[in-house]
Simulated assay, not measured.
Amino acid sequence: MWDVSAYRTSDRRRSTARLIGAVLLPCALLLSACSTDRPAPTASPRASQAESTYTPPIATERFPLRGTGVPPGSLAHPSLAVKIDDHEAARPQFGLERTDLVFEELVEGGLTRYVAVWHSDIPDVVGPVRSIRPMDPDVIAPLGGIVAYSGGQQQFVDMMTATSVVNAAFDSDETGLFSRTDEREAPHNVVLRAKALVDRNGAVPAPPQQFAYAATVPESSAAVDGIPVTTISSRFSDSRWPDWTWDAASGVYLRRQEGAPDLDAGGVQLRSTNVLALRVAIDDTYLHVPKTTMIGSGEAWVSTGGKTLHALWTKAAQDAPIHLTDDNAVTIRLAPGNTWIELVPVDRGSVILVP
């Protein structure tokens, strides 16, 4: 018969230890066997195949004066604004077909000249180059970059050099990049090596964005909310009345000057994705030299994709861009592509829209 009281505590502890050891040993052996025999994990064929065929999307930036996408690094150079002649003896001009922006403005005698701006596609040669006018600092200052012209009244040159824009003038040329071509008669024969001028000023930053852009033509504000218009005719004077006609086949507006096709140096009619007609006041402070008033606001029409939208343009300061809003005060988005801006005088010009 067992005496329970004679079963000592130490005996119970040794017995318990032996029991735990007996249980743990088989478990340890089992775990060791499992870790030794289990195969190493491998990637599934489906995952490997997906990784090998995946192509990451190409990163893009947008040209600030055109709204079109480009690979990163393509924007790292300044824009170039040039005063371009529009006299009959200056036509066809060199390089207008490759512009991002063109501003047409009234000058003396009822004629017009251009501020032509290149950034996304800079030609080797542009021209004919003409002299600066009093409204040009207000037009060009928001772009930064470089401005090139053939000279001008000293007061107008001083106004231009007072901006932050890099000035290059034919009359005081130290670059050697201006010359006269034998193809035209003076003063309509000054040309500029445009790309070389931009390359020499590579440290000057790219221009800031001037207008808002939609991703596609059908998504632009005029295409969505505008009315069908086939022709936009802007009359500056009895001597200058350009018009733009929508060409559905090519998806662009084609330009005419005084009723005749306006051609580039290659014989192709000038064209634009967007056409803006802005009504502007004329300041006669400089007597026979009209100054387009650019700081302020006025009525406008924005044409894209065969449709035209009524708008308001505003410009708060010399270095501020032009802001376009519709009749509901919503910012207007242009289509990606080039833009011509007709600065039509309120008191002596007109804008006619033909359905």
Rank of each mutant, 00 (worst) to 15 (best):
M1C: 09
V4F: 06
R12G: 10
R13T: 09
T16C: 10
R18L: 13
V23K: 03
S35W: 15
T42E: 12
L65H: 03
T68M: 04
P72D: 08
G73Y: 09
S74H: 03
L75S: 01
A76M: 08
P78I: 00
A81D: 04
K83N: 05
K83A: 07
F103M: 01
E105P: 06
Y114W: 10
P123A: 06
G127H: 01
I132Q: 03
I140N: 06
V147Q: 03
Q155I: 12
V166Y: 10
A168F: 05
A168R: 06
A169E: 11
S172F: 10
G176R: 08
V191R: 12
A194G: 05
A203C: 05
P205Y: 12
P207Q: 13
Q210M: 13
F211K: 02
S220L: 02
G226Y: 04
T230F: 06
W246C: 01
A248I: 07
V268M: 11
V275C: 08
H288S: 15
K291N: 15
W301D: 01
T304L: 02
G305E: 00
G306R: 03
G306P: 03
K315A: 07
I322G: 02
D326T: 05
R333A: 04
R333K: 13
A335M: 00
D347M: 13
D347P: 07
